[in-house]
């Protein structure tokens, strides 16, 4: 019973990771690639860690698994936020079928205001 549960969980986690990596390969633009990757991989690693906890069924292993999950949940959004901001600042384009871009309008407004004040000075 325990063995079957471990098999199912590890397979599920591997499939989540496979889908995340296939998403990285397939998606057309940078931002959708970023939003596919980080979380699907986190979910897959969660499944595999639960499988490891069930396999060893030990106090120290459970603590380590919780620590790994905690570190990943805390750090991966920070990395995603930083890299998406830098990508936007360095001029990565959105997908060609995108609906709206409200950040671009605001940045243009701000730069217009700045150039106006520079002219007045």
């Amino acid at each position: 019973m325990n063995d079957i549960l471990i098999m199912i969980l590890s397979t599920l986690g591997a499939i989540f990771i496979l889908i995340a990596s296939f998403g990285v390969f397939k998606m057309p633009d940078f931002y959708s690639r970023l939003s596919v990757t980080i979380k699907a991989a986190t979910l897959g690693i969660g499944c595999i860690l639960i499988a490891a906890v069930l396999y060893f069924s030990d106090f120290s292993v459970t603590t380590k698994a919780i620590a790994i999950m905690f570190f990943l949940l805390i750090t991966s959004p920070v990395a995603g936020f930083l890299i998406s901001k830098v990508a936007y600042m360095t001029g990565t384009k959105l997908w060609k079928h995108s609906l709206m871009d409200e950040l671009k309008d605001d940045l243009e407004k701000e730069s217009n205001k700045q150039s106006k004040t520079e002219k007045e000075n």
Partner: peptide, 25 residues
């Protein structure tokens, strides 16, 4: 672009964590 490669590298390390866990089993 460089940012695409950085995201791929980040995901590669994350998959490495999963691989090490499986190896320990």
């Amino acid at each position: 672009q460089v940012v695409d490669r950085v995201v791929a590298l980040d995901l590669l390390i994350t998959v490495g964590v999963a691989f090490i866990t499986l190896f320990s089993i």
